Simulated scan of single mutants.
Amino acid sequence: MDQEERLLHASSFGAAAGAYAAHRPNYARAAVGWALAPAPGPRVLDLGAGTGKLTATLAAAGAEVVAVEPDPEMLTALRRSLPAVRALPGSAEAIPLPDGSVDAVLAGNAMHWFDMAVAGPEIARVLSPGGVLAGLWNLMDDRVDWVAGLARIGGSAVVGPRDTPSSWRAETAEAHLPKTAAAARFGSPERAEFPHGQLRTADSLVATLATRAGLLVMPDEERNATLGRIRAFLASRPETARGEFTLPLLTGVLRVRPCAGDSC
């Protein structure tokens, strides 16, 4: 994806903020706990917070969380659902917080939109000594037969390069973390995956998939045709044709810490 296409996809979510808030899954609590385990304190920045899916889990876990989100519509939805949380306009490339003010920076399904050459120094700047940076992604578990079939029917607009366990592992193996500026160097990444799931019906799963960037930027006719194929597929499968079912997910976590001195 070139820079222009990346920006188009990254900016597509605001128009669907209500549907995003209603239908996107939260994150496995065990994954959030693992992401935060090395943090030296409770102050957490949810960066690229969207409508607050990860923010809510952090707040429920007792973190002193502040959320930063660049899209006004997404930020409005976050503030509406989590009025007690401090939520600020800003981006990974321009974080509106003082130096050393948080013990962890977490990003839920967002880090791949960051320009890490710029965001890396910003993240390192706001982290306290010993702080941690972690990205979390919800992955469709295509080891399950019907989920693999859904991935084939939906194509790349529905299942992108970080949306299944194998593709996520490949993408994060080459995660771009700055190695040049001394203030922004990060150590070797650690990865872990945690079982998760989302209770859905066929209609609500279609609504969930419709919030993916690849579908949001499609022309209406093509998007409607893609969603129609997905509906037909779900109606054809005994696992999804009637009533509620669990969409099998994994929450994948990439965790890194800034280097101290010449430690990496």
Score class of each variant (00 low, 15 high):
P83W: 11
H23N: 11
E174L: 07
S12W: 07
G90K: 12
A157D: 13
R169N: 15
D46R: 05
A21K: 04
W137S: 13
E222G: 00
V85W: 00
A10Y: 10
T172R: 13
A175E: 08
P219Y: 09
L97P: 08
L45N: 01
E244M: 02
N224E: 14
S236D: 12
G90P: 06
D46E: 09
R80G: 15
A104Y: 01
R257Q: 15
V32P: 03
H23M: 06
E193H: 03
A182C: 06
E239M: 03
G154W: 08
E4F: 11
S156Y: 08
R125M: 10
G108T: 04
P195E: 04
V105W: 05
L36E: 00
G41S: 06
L177K: 10
E239K: 07
P42C: 08
R79Y: 09
W113N: 09
P195D: 13
I123K: 05
L127Y: 05
G228D: 09
E239A: 04
V102N: 10
R212P: 13
S166K: 10
N109A: 15
Q198A: 15
F114P: 00
R143E: 09
H23A: 00
A63I: 00
V126K: 07
D203I: 02
R6Y: 10
A260T: 15
G160Q: 07
G197P: 09
I153D: 04
R24D: 07
T55E: 06
I153H: 02
V65P: 01
A157Y: 12
V256Q: 03
R86D: 11
F233D: 12
V118N: 03
R200V: 13
T172E: 09
R257V: 03
A16N: 09
A175Y: 05
V126E: 08
P248Y: 00
L54W: 00
V159T: 12
H112T: 08
L136N: 12
L205G: 10
V253A: 02
A94R: 14
T51M: 00
A56S: 11
A31G: 15
A241F: 15
T76Y: 14
M116Q: 14
E5M: 14
L127D: 02
P248V: 00
P89R: 08
P70K: 06
D71W: 04
A124P: 10
G261T: 11
M218I: 05
E64I: 06
A39M: 04
P96T: 11
V132S: 02
G214R: 14
S91G: 06
P178Y: 03
H23W: 08
A183Y: 03
A183G: 13
A182F: 03
G50T: 08
G155H: 05
V118S: 12
A184S: 13
A202S: 12
F194W: 02
F114N: 03
G197Y: 05
L54I: 04
P165Q: 08
E221R: 14
P72F: 03
V85Q: 01
S12N: 09
T211A: 10
A30D: 12
R152T: 14
I95K: 08
D141W: 05
G155P: 02
A94I: 11
R29V: 03
A182R: 06
